[in-house]
């Protein structure tokens, strides 16, 4: 009876199931493959950091508005001098409905000037940050990868690195005529060296690690070793240095403007605005001219600083699991 039931079950089973299946090689691949993605993982760790996300959205909003502001309706000109009823310029008008952030000492609209100045300063900062990263990676990787160059560049570095950065900055800006290009050039000369050294140190550390050795033994082409093995390890450092170079450049611009080597007064920049505000800061009713640009500048630089640091943490492969 028992055996009869089993026989009954067997009768209902589809014979197809007992045929040998063809081996699916790609299925085997799928099991052995983890869907770990470096950038995905970096982004996930970054988004977990609440403070960093706050500053990230703040910065995105600020940047978006900075570049959209001239296109919006009802915006005023940043360099035009506005006049009142009697044809006299509207000097030092307090913040109000007409002029949201008031006007400055010669009657220009502070609201428009601040956004225009932010554009200028951001442009300077980004140009400097980009150049720093570019030169830093190029020279740094040559310095670290080509063993014959190591000695030479190190000696050169030891000579140049002894000179205070501020002095290089002042000297370069003093000798060239003041202007946008000059300022960017001066900051670039002063700034890329530390980045190159960071990159070089990182490359020297990971150049001869076992995984690189293994890749080389397996015949991986050098380009793939660089893009897959070396660069992801460097990305955190490079991104952080670039992100930190931007607030530094904005700060340098303020400094250079103060000592009289900055942009011409006709171009609004955060440095020029802070400096204009500093001149009138002694009367409390005009202090808004100092406070508004300073707050703007601080928001931007703090955002970059916090984002740069948290991104470096997130992008560090050691923190990935």
């Amino acid at each position: 009876m028992r055996s009869g039931k089993i026989e009954g079950v067997c009768d209902n089973i589809d014979a197809e199931l007992f045929r040998l299946a063809r081996q699916d090689e790609s299925a085997g691949e799928r099991v052995g493959y983890s869907n770990y993605s470096y950038w995905h993982s970096t982004w996930r760790i970054f988004t977990k950091n609440r403070v960093a996300m706050f500053f990230f959205f703040l910065l995105c909003a600020l940047l978006l508005f900075t570049f959209l502001q001239p296109l919006l309706p009802g915006q005023r000109d940043a360099v035009k001098i506005y006049t009142g009823d009697a044809g006299r310029p509207l000097r030092n008008a307090p913040p109000g409905r007409d002029f949201w952030f008031g006007t400055n000492a010669i009657g220009q609209d502070l609201w428009a000037r601040i956004w225009s100045g932010t554009r200028t300063s951001m442009l300077i900062g980004m140009a400097v940050g980009f150049f720093d990263a570019l030169m830093g990676v190029l020279v740094g990787s040559l310095w670290g990868y080509v063993r014959r160059l190591d000695r030479l560049i190190t000696e050169l570095y030891n000579v140049v690195q002894n000179i205070p950065e501020t002095i290089i900055l002042i000297l370069a800006a003093y000798i060239l005529r003041p202007g946008m290009g000059t300022i960017i050039f001066a900051m670039c000369i002063a700034g890329w060296l530390p980045t190159a050294r960071y990159v070089r140190n990182q490359i020297v550390i990971i150049r001869d690690r076992e995984f690189n050795l293994a890749s080389r033994c397996l015949g991986t082409p050098t380009s793939r070793i660089i893009t897959r093995n070396l660069l992801p390890q460097l990305v955190s450092v490079i991104m952080m240095r670039t992100a930190l170079a931007i607030p530094l450049a904005i700060g340098h611009e303020v400094f250079l403007t103060y000592i009289g080597l900055g942009l011409p007064v006709s171009i609004p920049s955060l440095g020029n605005l802070v400096n204009e505000g500093r001149i009138v800061m002694m009367s409390p009713s005009l202090r808004y001219q100092l406070i508004f640009p300073s707050v703007m500048l601080s928001l931007i630089t703090i955002s970059f600083y916090v984002i740069g640091n948290s991104f470096a943490d997130a992008a560090d492969p050691k923190n990935h699991l």
């Binding site: 601080s298 703090i302 970059f304």
Partner: peptide, 8 residues
Amino acid sequence: VKAVAPAV
């Protein structure tokens, strides 16, 4: 201190 421009 490290982020805000020292001048400010």
